[in-house]
Design a protein around this nucleic acid. Sequence first.
DNA 1: GGACTCATGTAAGCTGTTACATGATTTC
DNA 2: GAAATCATGTAACAGCTTACATGAGTCC
Lengths: 186, 186
Amino acid sequence: MHVKTLCLGALCLGDATGYDIKKLFEAAFNHFHHASFGSIYPALKQLEKEGLVSCRVEPGSRHPTRNLYSATDEGRAEFAAALAGTEPNEDIRSEFLVLLFFAHLLPTDILEQKLDQVEQRYESQLAYLEMLRRESDTTAGIRLTIEIGIAASRAKLDTLRRHRDALLKQHRDIPASWTESDSCTA
Amino acid sequence: MHVKTLCLGALCLGDATGYDIKKLFEAAFNHFHHASFGSIYPALKQLEKEGLVSCRVEPGSRHPTRNLYSATDEGRAEFAAALAGTEPNEDIRSEFLVLLFFAHLLPTDILEQKLDQVEQRYESQLAYLEMLRRESDTTAGIRLTIEIGIAASRAKLDTLRRHRDALLKQHRDIPASWTESDSCTA
DNA sequence: GGACTCATGTAAGCTGTTACATGATTTC
DNA sequence: GAAATCATGTAACAGCTTACATGAGTCC
């Protein structure tokens, strides 16, 4: 789903500035999407040009430039249609799994260090999502979004921990193929 | 991680054509990375130009053009270094979770249909990974790659099933905000 | 003979990121 | 008064996908 559509969606939840939308992405979409300012601001401009959102400089603004956007009725209709038409896909790119896939080409200490990093990352993501769950006073859909994120992180973390020692032990025992450049020739 | 690096990695596992690499990606990387021909072929050309892989037209080929690539020693060293230097990140883009996030803007029947689609998708991914696990006679790292994929899919599927009915019930009960365009104005 | 798989390649175009440029406001 | 946060924007560039173009081999 394009950043443009996501911005329109964000504005269907309430008026916001580009900056607010970025914050929303970081706070709530964190574990399943993201976007940078460099795509958000142009997207909002584009949406305005298409009449899907309207923009007003905030009245009584403390700041000269603060563009507050609202979804128009047309915009809401458009977003509902876009939602209904999106395939519920998932696109995962995990450098971590690539690393594991090629683990036999890494020295043990580096592998161990990567595993530590990943565990920490999963832990902090888990902690963050659990915090969201505690606070969350929202729709059933959003709550499910959080539940699925927690379940997936937990499952990955548990699996990793369960296999970690065996992986490292075997890794140390088997002469690493990375030391001899001719040992993995086809 | 760039397709170029991934191709180099694939060639560290054994000689292959561009076509073979695509197959490998589909078979083994399926749940955590992917690449199209349009990026693989140019990547191989580039790697060859950099001396990281060598290419020979297959000897005694049944087919005039079949470019079999091999990683050179320099290529193997380069890949090992690239691996050691990659942060074990995960980049997830889930249209499905976006859909859930905005579930209140969808009519119940469409939501239900999306949930069905996702369940089926997770089921078939799970089936595929479990098949891989049964067959798999590979490195500990690759096996862990599969275990993590299974655990994550299973966790998401279970969570979805556990909350599905409650979500749909509540969705039907609460007057959907998508019917009245002014009902979610900020 | 038709369909499918094997096999390679290019070019246009889309999308988004990074990095830069700018400056006000708030908090300590 | 320094640092952090709020706030907007652009331009260059990267990287990948899609679609096209081509054709041999294999299976039914």
